[in-house]
Design a protein around this nucleic acid. Structure first.
Lengths: 238, 238, 238, 238
DNA sequence: GATGAATGAGTGTTCATTCAT
DNA sequence: GATGAATGAACACTCATTCAT
């Protein structure tokens, strides 16, 4: 066919080429899985839903993924690995603990802004599938925590952090604060469409984990807090 | 009911009385549900499992609970209401924010010590069933957060907390730190059998949320940290 | 209940009693399975067919049988064990090899007359499922053959049979002759509705295995042979 | 086609020629089908298995065979037609019934020696697919039986066989004895690797069908019988 | 012709729920 | 109330067949 000769030229142009189209298909199924998954959860989602969402035939899902479990496993690992590497990059890039912590927080919130659905899936399921004997999910949680714990250990070695603190608990605290804040948006406790609120949440989270709730002097800037979604309660003044 | 009055008399006697026996049955089913649930998760557990665990007949579960959802709802609410009321009591009992925060942390860790399985269920499922149109579960999370948010608002009103902070985010931070620490025990990242570790975790968590990781000077007491379960890495000295 | 006391009286009367009714159900499913199985074969039959044939709900089949394989296993073994024990009885009852052989042939043909469908299933499937890792089926064939081989060995010991013959091959010959004759009826090569033909077939089969086709003088009685079903061809001259 | 004319020229040259290569492909698929079929059976085998075994692409099977059924049909008929013609040749070549019977037995055992897998397929499936509305398989059985029945009829006409015997039953007896003996090897009841055993089995089978088990005096030659595979039971006294 | 991705109907199995005893 | 047999909808997974390249 006359198509072969100009493959090199068109490589990243139109006419995808078989391999490329397949990779594309695979990805679209993965994306669809994230969507359905974020809506219906691990157990609630049906392969049929994923196929329909991806716009492919039922059986094709099984062409690309061995079974439902593996599909979901891939959803996790693909989303998670990106997050992990960005967290790692943030930690490596910065030199002071404070900057590192802010970087981690930033990465998490940025990930949420970019792909709320993906984050929702990760938050709602990672490390929380009881049966999840599946490798990646169970250990994903462990993995980040260890990563951050290492960061805290290094800070202790540099004298930036009291060595009286358990690095693992420091790590869980960091991710606990982040995760719960994001969860608030995910479950609608805070308004996920309010981008400024997201920014402020990010800052407050970083501040809280670094200096605590009562430890630091307040920043003077006042903000119309309590814009939680459920009931837009009238702003209270103190 | 005419049965109530002699409860005191028969309390620990034979012939429990029909109503009592029924209440007992109901509770044993509920307990069994918590067990199975903590082992297999919301979706993974079958009514048959619960019945077998409780030692009752298959169909009997449906005498006491309308359906599977209601059973699980009850598991949640019964476990949750106790937690909620104890949190509320702790907040009410104390007057300073700091004492209140410590009280909340204490309640959570105490609950874990008393009933790790129950806490596991709450942690792994509360607010995390995406399909969970179920009222109580979705709102359970919201409920405590609002409770704590109110506590923080009051503290702001008393001038104990910077009014620049969003009370809702303060609340999520508090529970995020607590929850993730307990999760570490639940998933085995920290050794759940090490009772001293649990105590230290409780203290560090309270300290962290109050003063932050870098904000406060270290407590002088040294502890053999890093006793995380996976690999008992060599203790570091400061 | 007033039903319990007269159970002994009514034992085989109406009012089946739970256990009895269940056994009945189980049997009816088994019977239905034989039917469907004989019509569509091992792989071709669907659980839905069996359920419909038995007049029970789909899921009930799974109440009584673990899965399709076990159901079919039971179909085999239940049918086969009856046959086996009757073969054994026939062998034990008779003392001369000749009478024993006739008894075995008689048992097989009688079984066919009684339950052609059951025999069809056994003939078409026993020892013929290639994947049949299943215990009973694979070994069922082996079992009868060994049984008959033992009979022939005993006859050799008594001097009734040449010890130059391999008992196992004697046994396969016996069942081969029987089986293929019945197969002729099963597949319609011979008219399965012609009861006299069945009787003559039985006699000829016994005669053939005992004395061979050319070894014995013919019985003087002439018979209008060649009444095969497909086309009742005009009698040929002898 | 313009391709045909030069086939003769290139017949045994290099460049097999398209037509030849295709015929080759077709045959290799057929061979692969026999293999897979003999291992997994009619229903248990998948087109994918056949393609893999043949070393060709999935879809190619559908170039050469309309569908799975036709493929299997061809497996049967190709294997069967060879057997049939050899049986026919044996019958035609010989003049006495006894020699003819021995020839038929010989053909069958020779076929088994040459291609045990093919024979296994024929034995396990021919005439035994209940759903097998397929023409050739159902009738294949009928066909040989009719062929042999004709042989017996002719022998009756020549006075070599009692006309009291039903020729069709004579035929089923002949093939029954043969088939069951071969089945013993196929299922492992007799050791298929013992070539001498196969030879003796052939002889005994012929002897049995001709003179019966008790009708004929034993051949003086003694043989170490009972070498069946399962348990090499201790030799019995003669 | 050759390839293997794409399709989707078919079916075994599970399990919440009902109901007769 | 207690029991567990009965029901059937739901869903994961298979695989023959088609078709674009």
């Amino acid at each position: 066919m006359s198509r072969e000769h100009d493959v090199a030229v068109e490589k990243s142009q139109r006419k995808p080429g078989r391999a490329e189209r397949e990779a594309e298909r695979r990805k679209s199924i993965l994306r669809a899985a994230v969507d359905v998954f974020s809506r219906k959860g691990y157990q609630g989602c049906r392969i049929a839903d994923v196929a329909r969402e991806a716009g492919v035939a039922y059986g094709l899902v099984y062409h690309y993924f061995k079974n439902k479990d593996e599909l979901l496993e891939d959803v996790f690992s693909s989303g998670w690995s990106g997050f992990l590497s960005r967290v790692q990059a943030g930690i490596t890039r910065e030199t002071s603990l404070e900057a590192q912590v802010r970087a981690v927080v930033q990465v998490a919130f940025e990930a949420y802004r970019r792909d709320p659905r993906g984050v929702k899936v990760l938050i709602l399921e990672v490390g929380r599938s009881p049966a999840g004997g599946a490798v990646s999910r169970g250990s994903a949680f462990t993995h980040v925590v260890q990563l951050a714990a290492e960061m805290f250990r290094a800070a202790q070695a540099r004298g930036e952090l009291s060595s009286a603190l358990d690095p693992v608990l420091c790590a869980t605290s960091l991710f606990g604060v982040i995760e719960m804040a994001l969860t608030s948006f995910v479950v609608g406790l805070l308004d996920r469409r309010d981008e400024q609120l997201i920014d402020r949440a990010r800052d407050q989270v970083a501040e809280t984990i670094l200096r605590g709730l009562v430890g630091a002097g307040p920043s003077p800037a006042e903000a119309p807090w309590n814009r939680s979604v459920p009931k837009p309660k009238t702003a209270r003044r103190d």
